[in-house]
Simulated assay, not measured.
Amino acid sequence: MRILKYLFLLIGLLFIGVTVYIATQKGDFRVKQSAVIHTPRGVVFDYVNDYMNWETFGSWMTKEHGITFTYPAKTMGAGAQFNWDNGSDNGHMKTYFVKENDSIKQRGSFNGTTADVYWTLKDTIGGTKVTLEARGKMDLLTKISTFFSGGFSSIANDAFEKSLRNLDKTLTYEMKTYSIKVNGIVQRNSGFCLKQTVTCRINSLPRNIKIMMPKMLHFFKKNGLSMSGKPFILYERYDRANDIVTFSVCAPTREEIFITSGSEITSGAIVPFTCLKTTLTGDYSHLKEAWTKAENYIRDNGYTPNFAGKYSEVYIKTIDDVKQPSQWITEIHIPVFPKAVPASPTVTNTTVENTAQPAVTTPTTVTP
């Protein structure tokens, strides 16, 4: 019995000693990892800048099952944020500074441990050199929980390395895997929608769409509204000569909804028209190629564009449906005039009657 008492006392003293040792260690940490991502810098920046994409490459997210992610209306750019929770662990991340295609500064917390996170992007041979760095301070529980696993810095370094590797793998495959199909002539039906219209430079169009679309979806959710179809973009004006585009982010509704004055969101009507439908399956970076293919099809097949109509992009499947960009589906609708149906030849039916009356000619009508 006495030996057991001494043994328990020794274990207790050892535990206290280890705890005191861990507690007296510096809580400050700095972790830094770099990797070459084999994708152009602008594409890497846009992907990292949007928290909605982090589930596809964050090592602490992809390896965990049962994590719940919560996203507000703004998920990219300065002021963007999101939360995650899997029951035992929880975290929060917010973006404080963004320099386009160059750097991002964020602040995150994980079970009480906070850190400033820095992303730096530089052009290099073969792609983009991405540097991910975190500086912060551990609380006591984090010191203790990570001590027996090699320390917090070792764990964080491993997580950063895996995340950058996942980012390269994701972008290399997901961004380069796509298909474009010209479906043919279809009819767009009439209806109602809510929309937000802005004018900007053409090169700012993709970024503004990424900002405005989540806001529109958040508006529907906040007000308990239901969409009667998929969200879409209407191009009101596309002026290449003056580098100006006016477009509307739209969401279809079952009935006309009136919005109080002063709101950025307004009511609108969907005008029916005949159009050429082209489908892009893949990331939005291939939209330019899809538009070009659709326009070439119109020219090569003798269709006439209907400039009185409005060009549109319909987002059939987005990041809200599936995280992998290679599986996103976007339809392009270009208004065209239907081809004239050739007049049918006249068929003469001659009927000879006993009264010897003149023959009667009856035309056969062919419905297009």
Rank of each mutant, 00 (worst) to 15 (best):
R41Q: 10
E161Q: 15
L234K: 11
S103D: 04
V117W: 02
N189P: 03
S179G: 11
G108D: 02
R2N: 13
S88I: 03
I319P: 02
L7G: 11
Q327R: 12
D320T: 00
V341H: 11
L10V: 15
K176A: 11
T95L: 05
A290L: 05
G58K: 02
F258M: 10
T260V: 04
Y303L: 03
G126M: 08
P206R: 05
S285Q: 08
K215C: 02
K288S: 10
V18Y: 13
D320P: 00
T95R: 03
P206E: 02
L7Y: 07
I316Q: 08
F232G: 05
Y297V: 04
E100P: 10
M175S: 09
K181R: 14
I211N: 11
F307N: 14
Q327F: 04
P214G: 11
G17M: 10
K293A: 14
R165G: 12
M175K: 12
D300Y: 10
P368Q: 07
R201D: 01
E331L: 11
P325Q: 06
N242K: 15
T197A: 00
I144Y: 14
A78D: 04
F15E: 08
N90E: 07
N296A: 14
T362G: 09
F273N: 11
N208S: 08
Y21S: 14
T348V: 13
Y238D: 04
Y118C: 07
N223Y: 07
T113V: 15
E295S: 13
E64I: 10
N223I: 08
T260W: 00
K210M: 06
N223T: 07
G17H: 05
D168H: 10
V182Y: 01
T68P: 02
C275E: 00
G12V: 10
A356S: 12
E100H: 14
N111P: 07
S149Y: 12
Y173P: 02
F307E: 09
T350N: 12
G229R: 09
L225Y: 13
G224T: 02
K221Y: 00
T120A: 13
D123H: 04
W84C: 10
V98Q: 03
V366C: 06
G224L: 03
N86T: 03
R41F: 00
Y71A: 05
D102L: 03
R299H: 08
Y21G: 14
N86Q: 07
